[in-house]
């Protein structure tokens, strides 16, 4: 340093301190931690990529806490959110159309299901009714009204359509009248079963219902933290899951959907993940965890599986829908699942 004249010395010092200061100011510390690719449950095979659709907002393509989601036969899907809007997206996530429920002062619609005629069944929860609507938002027919009688609803939360059998199932809760109701596709009431309680066969806030390939009816029994399987007449076939966060445990399962290959996907509101069970109610794998990254969820209310085995999850608090190819197509030979006895249905398979 002494070889340099004094002026140069100070210049060099100044430059060095300037560089140091800049480094300290703008360097954010350790490089960003990239989350290690998480194996989805036990299946450590190459994790498929999640597609994110939508973001927070009230414009077309934006969500305000999306809840009900239903897949249409052509691969497109509809999503209902907390601003009483229903949006129709194309298969690759492009927003196509949007409509707002005409009456939503009392509350927003929750569950949706696609009808074989191209229309939609919308559970208008706080109005105690199910609306049959066209894909462009016009009400075609109203099923039921507020009440506890057969054919009436207190708070219908979700619905599922069995196109082959020509029936639809609606689950509801409220006024200790939690039950499953079965209707013809023209809205005629067929039967109802369930009831409020925690024993197998009883329901406490059944907030999701799905129909599998054999006509079985799966119900997400949210406040009992389990899923139950019934046959088309309402006979209990099995109840699976209990409260917890581990494998095969559930915490407020809000919705479920049956994939073409028989798997049952369950959206867990409080565990922020999707658990997968097989047709016998055995735990297969769990997908996702709490967070905001792709593949992470925040209080997912609903999910749907389309005919191609794509899983669409309504990632409610993250204001988005996540899509992934989660399941294979329907196996060609459908092995009839052995009907388990009710005794075996309890506890962890």
């Amino acid at each position: 340093m002494s070889v340099l004249p004094a002026a140069s010395r100070s210049v060099v010092l100044l430059a060095v301190s300037g560089v140091l200061a800049a480094v300290l100011l703008f360097w954010n510390g350790a490089p960003k931690h990239e989350p290690a690719p998480r194996p989805a449950g036990k299946d450590a095979a190459a994790a498929p990529a999640w597609t994110i659709v939508g973001r927070q907002g009230l414009e077309l393509g934006g969500f305000n806490q999306p809840r009900g989601i239903a897949a249409l036969p052509d691969g497109s899907f509809v999503v209902a959110d907390r601003s009483a809007r229903v949006q129709h997206f194309s298969a690759d996530g492009k927003p196509l159309a949007l409509w707002i429920m005409q009456e939503h002062a009392l509350g927003n619609p929750k569950g949706l299901a696609a009808l074989p005629n191209g229309g939609l069944l919308v559970c208008d929860t706080h109005y105690g009714r199910v609306l049959e609507m066209s894909i462009d938002g016009k009400v075609v027919k109203q099923w039921g009204g507020p009440g506890k009688e057969p054919g009436q609803f207190v708070h219908p939360l979700s619905c599922a359509v069995d196109a082959r059998a020509g029936v639809a199932y609606v689950v509801e809760y409220g006024a200790y009248n939690d039950r499953v109701q079965k209707f013809k596709l023209d809205g005629t009431f067929i039967k109802a079963w369930g009831g409020f309680g925690s024993e197998p066969g009883k329901l406490n806030r059944p907030s999701g219902v799905a129909v599998d390939g054999q006509g079985g009816v799966w119900v997400a029994d949210a406040c009992n933290h389990r899923i139950q399987k019934f046959d088309a007449e309402g006979t209990l076939l099995g109840a699976y899951g209990d409260l917890g966060g581990g494998d095969g445990q559930l915490s407020y399962p809000f919705d479920l959907a049956c994939a073409p290959n028989g798997e049952v996907f369950v959206a867990e509101f409080n565990n922020n993940r999707v658990s997968v069970f097989d047709a016998e109610g055995r735990f297969v794998r769990a997908m996702g965890m709490a967070g905001t990254q792709p593949g992470e969820f925040n209080q997912p209310w609903s999910l749907a599986v389309d005919a191609q085995g794509r899983l669409l999850v309504s990632d409610t608090r993250n204001n988005r829908v996540q899509i992934i190819q989660a399941s294979g197509p329907a196996p060609r030979a459908v092995a009839r699942a052995a009907v388990e006895s009710p005794k075996q249905a309890q506890g962890n398979p």
């Binding site: 009392l106 509350g107 706080h126 105690g128 507020p146 207190v154 409220g174 200790y176």
Partner: peptide, 9 residues
């Protein structure tokens, strides 16, 4: 509250 049913419950 959302409506009558909630209230009565």
């Amino acid at each position: 509250p959302h409506g009558g049913a909630d209230v009565s419950t």
